[in-house]
Design a protein around this nucleic acid. Structure first.
Lengths: 207, 207
DNA sequence: CCAGAAAACTACATCAAATGCAAAGTTACA
DNA sequence: TGTAACTTTGCATTTGATGTAGTTTTCTGG
């Protein structure tokens, strides 16, 4: 599992991290749109052209770890136990997806300003919504594959879209009304429960 | 209500429509990214600079009528009757929002290719998701204002996000699996019902 | 109908993101 | 150590988008 990296690979990783760190710092300091790619590259001590061999666009730096949450959720679904019903599986998947956002360790310090950028800069918000949307497709397909007898693909899509859609909007609206990151997360969690309860009620009419 | 427009206003409207028509035609013919703003302007017989005094960006042409659906939905909510419960109100609002997409008249011929563009071109999909997301905020706030005793703002957000989120994902996934526009709309409708039933079940535990 | 104000259009300059390309530099490995 | 593979770089180019200044068109009131 643990590869020994050659000098080339190590240098590439270092450059990548330098670019990310420089970019985030500049974005936070002087704003996303006010920061140019040249400035980021200069701060990381590479040429502007090199930036684009690490990231396809300026936006991509912000979303460099965007697959963490979805990968966790997919793993949870893949590890379905024999007694798991679809709703429970979905519940656990979403929870572990949230966990990627709410990491307790020092990463929080890095993640919080990035989330703030994503929610306040329109082009980043759009990109974030796109990534989340595409993740939901993966999730719906995985959930359907995990429980083919319980949910067809359309139902799985409706369920996944409903739970995430509700959580997303509730969290965002709470933020817009002045909630702290923790309160925001809590609003998302409550909305998740709210919707999941609805799904449970609808999917178990006769016990 | 009906204003008599001066020559200036009429010309502006004509130019605007010419730009929209030229843009859509070119987008459909040779692809969104392959079409430049200069080409659109040339096809509409104005300078490139003038294009940007009608639309803030190339994307904006595609979304020129993006507020139709949300405005309909908001109107439905504003016209709440005394006996209306929040879920029914939401149901009607969504239905009428759908109606803006599923117009039966000849507009369909104009709308179908635009929707296809929005769903297939990533940057347009992102922009569409952003617009829809912001609409949902308006909708949630309106629903809360219309039924303040039944739903607080967080609950209204969860409900709106869930219903629209589910419909959106179900419709899109069905399209990705080869559904026709009509089938797609039907998938969205069914998902809407699916989620609304859940909400109804959860919000009426004891009759 | 005409003169001047207001609005719209145009050409031009400029900037930033993004891409292609070929030359120069670095790492890997036999 | 020499050469093949890979990375970085500078340069040119395209495109979207914005500021500005000057021209043309429309409007309004006499």
């Amino acid at each position: 599992m643990s590869e020994v990296l050659g000098l080339r690979e190590r240098k590439k990783l270092r450059t990548r991290h330098a670019l990310i760190a420089a970019a985030i710092e500049l974005f936070v300091e002087k704003g996303y749109e006010q920061t140019t790619v040249s400035e980021i590259a200069a701060a990381a001590d590479v040429s502007t052209r090199t930036f684009f061999s690490y990231f396809a666009s300026k936006e991509d730096v912000v979303f460099h770890n965007s697959r963490d949450g979805i990968d966790r959720a997919l793993r949870v679904i893949a590890e379905r136990g024999p007694g798991d019903r679809a709703v429970d599986l979905l519940s656990r998947a979403i929870t572990s997806g949230f966990a990627a956002l709410a990491v307790d360790d020092q990463l929080t310090r890095e993640i919080a300003p990035i989330n703030h950028l994503i929610m306040t800069v329109p082009s980043l918000r759009a990109r974030g919504l796109l990534l989340l949307f595409d993740s939901q497709q993966e999730l719906a397909e995985a959930l359907h594959r995990a429980c083919p007898d319980e949910l067809n693909l359309a139902e799985a899509s409706a369920a996944v879209g409903a739970v995430i859609g509700g959580a997303k909007l509730a969290a965002f609206v709470s933020m817009r009304h002045g909630a702290s990151p923790e309160e925001m997360l809590e609003a998302g969690r409550q909305a998740t429960e709210f919707t999941l309860n609805g799904l449970r009620a609808a999917s178990q009419p006769l016990p």
